[in-house]
Design a protein around this nucleic acid. Structure first.
Length: 997
DNA sequence: CCTATCACG
DNA sequence: GACGTACGTGATAGGA
């Protein structure tokens, strides 16, 4: 930088602590959508650079804290050999290396600074703090104002009449731990440090230490004590000299014993104001921004939005500026290669478990020619061009598409339907894609929009039956792979037309296996992530609000553009994703835990479960009566009418009007009225909360279950058909919706009445089979806890056994309360326990809960080791795996927010346990049909509730069926995994679900 | 559309 | 020393 302008009184010098600035940018980037964090064309991490540049541009143009800089320095730390390290070996010694994806961005940060016409300022042996201190002194001496921009509290020492401190934004808006930017003057700094002025901060830090830099300080002395001592004695030296005057004996002794440590700490935290400056202060004027060099940089980084903004701001022609060639993908100044694929197969080369009794059509993986075709077409994939999509109205043309699909051995497909529920929807058309960009749509049941003709079928479409007759051989051809996105939907639709699609691949499930935890697996999201393309949205096709039409009314060209594109996108996604399965060692997970479930669950959804409408409507009536009665009573007690469904109004009455204790606000500032709190109030003898609780319970049961379930009964089958999502959880569990049949009440008597409405038809029974304590068994295996393994092996009550080990009470002397506490602790461990949470749940003091946890860890040391291993693995790899090799990614582990990180750690601790249980029941489901068929049993699987399977079976087969089901479930882990604990399964049959459970 | 609450494992 | 506090879901109602 050539320019120079002397700093004088009234000037404004900005001194930016570049390292902390960059770290903040990095951690903030980890909180944002990951699609902003890598350069599209080569995957290089650039998220931190993007935020850094954005913020720097803002500083230069708009200033900060209402001030605009005349001079600006971005000061960095040289990586090695600070003089402090020579003083104290452990200085910053415990700091982990910066994350690797930040390290690769550091050279780009320096490039970014230069692109703004600035020079990064750094000096061997000195830290950024010392250079900032020295610049500050010099600027003060000239009478200029200084703004120090940093998050490092050491630098607050420099604040004074001319010098302010500016701590920029941290965390993400709306998330816990968010801090807005703030500007600290001398008064604010004094307030922050317990009333002591900035020049005393060094003494304070010398006493209290600084954990972030590993400055030792004096043990047992924190901010409060340090401040009190300095106030009393004036400064550190005086304090140490007169330490024998301190009244508290313990404190006196530690201070005397650690006086040298305090003096050393003082040296470490004291800033060197006489560092040799690599660039003189006068050489730091804010340069005139050279938009061309900045844009060349931004273009190379592919920051399109910022690039356009800069071009607008500085009125330059974007097209005239080339991206900086040194920084472009593969450029001379870039050290970045895509990370190589690693094989992390859990089951290794051992043969996968046979998945269904027979080899099955879905043993298909892809012939060599298919895979070759896949690679070849991928290399030549072209852009999305709606114009080249074909509307297929001629059966001969359809036949030629079918022939080509058979020829190449694979085809992507997407069915277009009239509704979202595959059990209700009509087939409206089918889209096929053969190659990227080559896709067609076969309209089958589109209707005209003219009401005059009753919206009859549009002319010219291939008759449904004719088209299906041509398609069926293709869709059932074992040598042609059918590729779909969420293909269970298409499978069910086509199954209802007598076509059993096989074999198939599902891009959604492939994505789920590879990237669970990285984001949703819907087509739009995957297209954006992997193809950089946003497909046409449903709203664009069907419209919104009043003008919304169902797909059968969409014009054919629009329908073609939409449906053919979906098939095209699906094919391209398959080309990107499928090769990653073997490359990343996840093929076995996909083949044993995902693909086999598609048709198994498809059949469960089609079967539905029989529900007795009479029982439900009678219950609805009963609940309505009780609710009305309660409403009256509550109004009587409260003395006014109000909406019982509104927590806000309940809070106003209980805490505002009646002044009951325990009032708390939710994060959004409303009254919090959770059941636990109302229950406490009820226990204390208050009638109103008790009545409200009762009202809430019944109201929930009525609206969510007895009313809603009736709405969900299928008009023809008269049964309830849920929909299972195979790829919606991070851990591998299924989820159920519309209606959710995985949360049917069971814990209360009123709730259980609802379960009784789930019945078996005349002549058959409901069978419920559930794993007993499966997650605790998995914990006992994974964390390798001999006592728990032993207890399971002997069939001892596991919570009692835990209580016995922890509290030293013999099993035959066990009291129910100790057992209950042990049970809570057992679950707490699975979920990543905290003393606070345990204390709250057991209503015991915090300290007591902490002791329990400590005891648990001492009795079962494997738990500690397991938790530490998981945390380490998550930090190092960003993911954890189940026993069967399913991956759960936790990118948020790198969050800058310690609370959020702790939350992610708890998730990561739970995931292998919950996920392994999910894998096991998936394996059981995949094998169940084959096993029943082999025994000539006609039981049908209807529902899955995480650790439970529900069946319907003829009365005369029950006795033979129960042991088969139990055996398949018990043996599900074999042969892939040999658990060190037996799995227990309880299976029972009855006329309804409540009695079977 | 978001928040609070509550049903399940 | 503060901060927030057990994991995974989906449905409903109120309120902006």
């Amino acid at each position: 930088m050539a320019s120079s302008r002397p700093v004088a009184a009234g000037d404004q010098v900005f001194l930016v602590d570049g390292s902390s600035f960059i770290f903040r940018a990095y951690f903030q980037s980890m909180n944002q959508d990951s699609k902003y964090n890598t350069r599209i064309s080569d995957g290089m991490p650039t998220g931190a650079v993007r935020l850094f540049v954005t913020k720097l541009l803002q500083f230069i143009r708009d200033g900060a804290a209402g001030l605009k800089p005349t001079h600006l320095a971005i000061v960095l730390d040289k990586s090695e050999g600070s003089f402090r390290k020579e003083l104290y070996e452990d200085y910053k010694g415990h700091r982990p290396d910066p994350p690797s994806d930040l390290i690769v961005q550091m050279p780009l940060m320096r490039e970014a600074i230069r692109a703004f016409g600035l020079d990064p300022i750094e000096l061997e042996r000195y830290e950024a703090d010392d250079l900032i201190a020295t610049y500050t002194q010099e600027a003060k001496a000239r009478g200029a104002n200084v703004l120090i921009i940093s998050s490092d509290k050491d630098l607050m020492q420099l604040v004074g009449p001319l010098v302010c401190f500016y701590d920029f934004e941290s965390g993400a808006k709306g998330k816990p731990g968010y801090r807005a930017e703030r500007n600290l003057d001398e008064a604010a700094v004094t307030e922050k440090w317990e009333g002591l002025p900035p020049e005393k901060i060094g003494d304070l830090l010398a006493l209290m230490g600084d954990s972030s830099d590993n400055v030792p300080g004096v043990p047992g002395i924190g901010l409060k004590t340090a401040a009190q001592l300095i106030k009393e004695f004036g400064d550190l030296e005086t304090l140490l000299a007169r330490a024998d005057e301190i009244k508290q004996p313990k404190r006196r002794e530690t201070l005397i014993a650690n006086a040298d440590m305090a003096r050393l700490s003082k040296k470490l935290v004291t800033l060197d104001c006489e560092a040799p400056l690599p660039v003189p202060l006068d050489a730091l004027p804010v340069p005139d921004l050279d938009a061309k060099s900045l844009i060349a940089f931004l273009k190379a980084m592919e920051f399109n939005t910022i690039t356009r903004r800069v071009a607008d701001l500085y009125e330059v022609d974007l097209a005239a500026i080339e991206p900086d060639p040194r920084l472009m993908p593969g450029g001379a100044s870039i050290r970045w290669e895509r990370l190589g694929a690693t094989d992390t197969a859990a089951e290794g080369s051992s043969p996968a478990a046979p998945v269904s009794g027979e080899a099955g059509p879905n043993g298909f993986v892809g012939t060599p020619s298919q895979l070759a075709a896949q690679r070849a077409t991928h290399a030549s994939s072209q852009g999305f061009d709606t114009a080249s999509y074909e509307t297929i109205m001629d059966i001969e043309v359809l036949k030629s598409w079918v022939a080509q699909a058979r020829e190449q051995g694979y085809v992507a497909l997407d069915t277009a339907t009239s509704a979202l529920d595959p059990n209700l929807a009509d087939l409206v058309g089918i889209a096929l894609a053969l190659k990227p960009g080559r896709a067609g749509y076969v309209p089958l049941q589109h209707r005209g929009d003219s009401d005059l003709f009753g919206g009859g079928m549009l002319p010219g479409q291939i008759p449904l039956a004719d088209a299906l007759a041509v398609l069926k051989p293709l869709l059932e051809d074992p040598s042609v792979l059918k590729i779909g996105q969420d293909i269970k939907y298409d499978w069910v639709i086509l199954c209802r037309h007598g076509i059993e699609v096989r074999p198939f691949d599902d891009t959604m499930l492939i994505s789920y296996v590879l990237d669970a935890g990285k984001g949703p697996h819907g087509m739009d999201e995957l297209a954006r992530r992997h193809l950089g393309h946003s497909p046409m949205t449903w709203a664009e096709v069907a419209g919104t609000g009043k003008g919304k039409v169902s797909f059968e009314r969409v014009e054919l060209d629009k329908a073609t553009a939409y449906a053919a594109e979906d098939a095209d996108v699906t094919l391209r996604l398959w080309q990107v994703l499928k090769p990653r399965l073997p490359a990343e060692g996840r093929a076995t997970v996909y083949e044993t835990l995902e693909r086999p479930l598609v048709d198994v669950i498809g059949r469960m959804e089609m079967r539905g479960i029989s529900v007795d409408r009479q029982i439900l409507s009678r219950l609805s009536g009963d609940f309505a009566q009780s609710l009305a009665r309660l409403e009256d009573e509550i109004q009587e007690i409260a003395g006014e009418k109000f909406n019982l469904g509104s927590p806000k109004q309940i809070g106003d009455i209980l805490f505002g009007k009646m002044g009951l204790p325990g009032a708390k606000k939710t994060p959004s500032g409303q009254w919090a009225t959770p059941a636990t709190l109302l229950d406490e109030l009820a226990q204390a003898g208050h009638l109103l909360p008790e009545k409200i609780l009762e009202w809430r319970q019944l109201s929930k049961l009525k609206s969510t279950y007895t009313d809603s379930l009736q709405q969900h009964m299928h008009p023809q089958s008269k049964r309830v058909h849920t929909s299972y999502a195979l790829a919606s959880t991070t851990t591998g569990r299924l989820s159920s919706s519309e209606p959710n049949l995985q949360n049917i009440p069971i814990r209360t008597e009123a709730g259980r009445k609802i379960r009784r409405a789930f019945v078996a038809p005349e002549g058959s029974k409901i069978i419920s089979a559930d794993y007993s304590q499966i997650e605790l068994r998995i914990l006992a295996h994974i964390a390798d806890i001999p006592q728990l393994q032993e207890a399971f092996a002997q069939g001892i009550d596991i919570h009692a056994a835990t209580a016995s080990a922890m509290f030293g009470v013999a099993l035959d002397q066990m009291n129910p309360d100790l057992r209950r506490q042990a049970k809570t602790i057992n679950f707490g461990i699975i979920y990543g326990i905290s003393a606070f949470g345990l204390a709250q749940r057991l209503s015991i003091p915090h300290g007591e809960a902490a002791t329990f946890i400590k005891q648990y860890f001492e009795r079962f040391p494997g738990i500690r080791a397991y938790m530490d291993d998981i945390k380490k693995m998550t930090r190092e790899n960003g993911y954890v795996t189940t026993l069967f090799g399913r991956v759960c990614h936790y990118p948020q582990i790198k969050s800058g927010n310690p609370n959020e990180r702790a939350g992610v750690e708890r998730q990561a601790i739970n995931a292998p346990i919950q996920g392994t249980a999910a894998d096991i029941i998936r394996r059981a489901m995949a094998r169940m049909e084959g096993a029943l068929k082999a025994e000539r049993l006609s039981a049908k699987m209807l529902l899955q509730v995480h650790d439970e399977l529900v069946f319907e079976a003829p009365d005369d087969e029950i006795a033979a069926t129960l042991p088969v089901i139990a055996r398949v479930m018990t043996d599900a882990p074999f042969p892939a995994v040999a658990l060190k604990v037996p799995l227990g399964v309880d299976a029972r049959a009855a006329q309804n679900w409540d009695e079977a459970h």
